[in-house]
């Protein structure tokens, strides 16, 4: 009995870690869907590219041949580590955010008024392009993600353990989520984003620069995705050109689960999906954990198409 309880606790911890990554990626989907009503299929590639940029920045900054004495400073103290990770995240967020803006400019903007199928196909094209670009120009093999700080396991209940890496991930994600929530709720740009998602045309008439809002959305979403990508690399220890696909689909599932277009819904959906999936892999079999995610998606869409926190949309004639 106690062993089972410990398994549950362990899977909950794993699930929350996994869920925090899903939540970050799901936010990217939900932000874009809320404003443009399109599934940004290429978002999973932002996650992947983010992991690569993070990996290269990290190896670059800890290489004494490139940065000299700074490498020792970064690795030496706790303060150095904090600065190092802050730099890695900022570089990855800016790089991937810019990539997201580029993709929007060249692949989606020309299709703004096209039927809804067109941008989806275009996004699939971008996704295939980016995957193969990384495959051809970076590396076909999985690259190891170096362990920069020593990961300690802390026993909390029976055999259930939580690692310092998991705590690090969860804390960072909570900070980012709070920041985004505050940003959207309090700032002028956030207000503009909310207005645009309610009614793009009316927002334009009220003097909001729609293109700027959309570009900005395509910066934040991928930037958050990049952070999730780095965490994924750190957590599993490798980065690979096709690492984005499955987490991408699951995060989309999470966004739908919470109610797509709803920011808090995406966060809730992400954590829920992560937990359900971890419990399933702990108690059923790891092979079926992906099945669980898709069954959850199908059930939600059938019984509550608007998602858990979403309003049901009435189709207008």
């Amino acid at each position: 009995m106690q062993a089972q309880l410990a398994t549950i606790v362990q899977q909950l911890i794993n699930g929350i870690t996994l869920g925090s990554m899903y939540a970050l990626v799901a936010l990217g989907y939900t932000l874009v869907y809320g404003i443009l009503l399109m599934i940004n299929f290429a978002h999973s590639e932002m996650f992947m590219v983010g992991a690569y940029v993070g990996l290269f920045t990290l190896t670059g900054l800890t290489n004494p041949h490139l940065v000299g004495g700074l490498a020792a400073f970064f690795k030496g103290s706790g303060f150095g580590l904090v600065i190092l990770f802050a730099l890695v995240f900022v570089v990855a967020m800016i790089a991937v955010g810019c990539l997201g803006m580029l993709v929007e400019r060249f692949a989606y903007r020309p299709l703004r008024n096209a039927p809804r199928l067109a941008p989806l196909i275009s996004a699939i094209g971008v996704s295939i392009f980016l995957q193969n670009a990384v495959l051809l120009w970076v590396n076909t093999m999985a690259l190891p993600f170096p362990q920069v700080f020593p990961v300690k396991e802390i026993t909390i209940y029976g055999s259930a353990q939580v690692s310092t890496l998991q705590i690090f991930i969860l804390v960072t994600v909570i900070i980012l989520l709070t920041a985004l929530d505050t940003f959207v709720a309090r700032t002028r740009m956030g207000k503009a984003m909310r207005a645009t998602s309610q009614d793009r045309e009316a927002a334009g008439l009220m003097g909001i620069d729609i293109n700027r809002v959309i570009t900005f959305t395509f910066f934040i979403g991928p930037a958050l995705g990049a952070v999730a990508g780095i965490f994924n690399g750190m957590y599993y220890g490798v980065v690979l050109w096709n690492m984005g696909f499955i987490p991408g689909i699951k995060s989309f599932t999470a966004a739908v689960l919470g109610g797509i277009g709803n920011l808090r819904g995406a966060i809730l959906g992400g954590f829920l999906l992560g937990i359900v999936e971890s419990l399933a892999s702990g108690f059923l079999s790891t092979g079926y954990k992906d099945v669980v995610a898709f069954i959850v998606l199908i059930l939600v869409l059938i019984f509550r198409p608007g998602g858990l926190l979403g309003e049901s949309v009435v189709e207008k004639v």
Partner: peptide, 20 residues
Amino acid sequence: ANYRYLLFGLLMVVMMAWRP
């Protein structure tokens, strides 16, 4: 042969913009 999927992805994007 290696670049075929890369070109293929690009083609999908161009095609949607140019001749949906």
